[in-house]
Design a protein around this nucleic acid. Structure first.
Lengths: 143, 143
DNA sequence: ATCTATGCAAACATTTTGCAGGCTG
DNA sequence: CAGCCTGCAAAATGTTTGCATAGAT
């Protein structure tokens, strides 16, 4: 069974409606490695599905974020979205915005290794954990 | 010698002018652990130095980023700035936006350890490397 | 005296929101 | 056929820019 179908079934089970817009967006983001912005995603999808507005793209991406289907990378020039939600390292060019995925072993060695392998001039790195702090868990907000 | 003085001397050596606005901003960000946004930084600094505009805060933060003195964390609700530019882990509450710094050993164990220690409900993580790709290095753009 | 840095306000880019109507279940 | 989802447009948010002037060197 396709990954798309699994996600669609999951959403349906949760009571979400399966619209052509949502399917098109999910399908596209599952099958690209381009880390699109909301706007570039909208442009590409409109070619096949003229009936998709930018607002719907944003709303759908919000839904997919909540469901853990996509990850949002907040970068200069707007957020980019990534269906690869497993633990992974993104190599971001702070000049042109290009993003590449990188395999790695241990944190301690990553930076040097990556610099050597990629020919990137590394100017910084960041490992961030996202979650709900204990206060917010108690309050049960917006989860 | 104070860290502030070192930075100020460095900037002066590079030909940048040492204005009260810049000193106030650098001084504040060096001595806070609150990961302020540009706007919150502006509010706090205005209390002591009414002559600091928000535009100047942004311009100064850009300068400090270029000099490697601060790190920008792009999060929901706006970027946050952090004088701790060494390699470190930020623990971000995706609900209230609180940011805490975390010590760590090895990447493999971080997520579980942090979840246990912090009582955070971890919903995702991200380790990003920032740098200039080889193309951009050749082109020598905007560095 | 020179010329960078500032403040102001307008411009800009991205994302969010409200509402009327359409489509899924 | 009930109510969630959509498209549109306006609004909100966060950041950048242009220009005249103040102020650091």
């Amino acid at each position: 069974m396709q990954k798309l179908d699994l996600i669609v079934n999951d959403l349906r089970k949760d009571g979400y409606r399966i619209t052509p817009q949502r399917v098109a967006i999910i399908d596209y983001i599952l099958n690209t490695e381009s880390h699109p912005t909301a706007e570039s995603l909208h442009e590409v999808i409109q070619k096949k599905h003229p009936m998709v507005s930018l607002a719907t793209v944003y709303k759908t991406l919000d839904l997919l974020k909540k469901k853990g289907i996509v990850q949002e990378l907040r970068l200069a020039g707007g957020s980019r979205y990534d269906a690869n939600v497993g633990r992974h390292v993104n190599l971001v060019c702070v000049n042109c915005g290009k993003i590449e995925d990188v395999d790695y072993d241990l944190l301690e060695e990553i930076e040097n290794k990556v610099a050597r392998k990629s020919k990137y001039d590394i100017v910084g790195s960041k490992f961030e954990l996202y979650g709900y702090c204990s206060n917010c868990q108690k309050a049960g907000i917006a989860k």
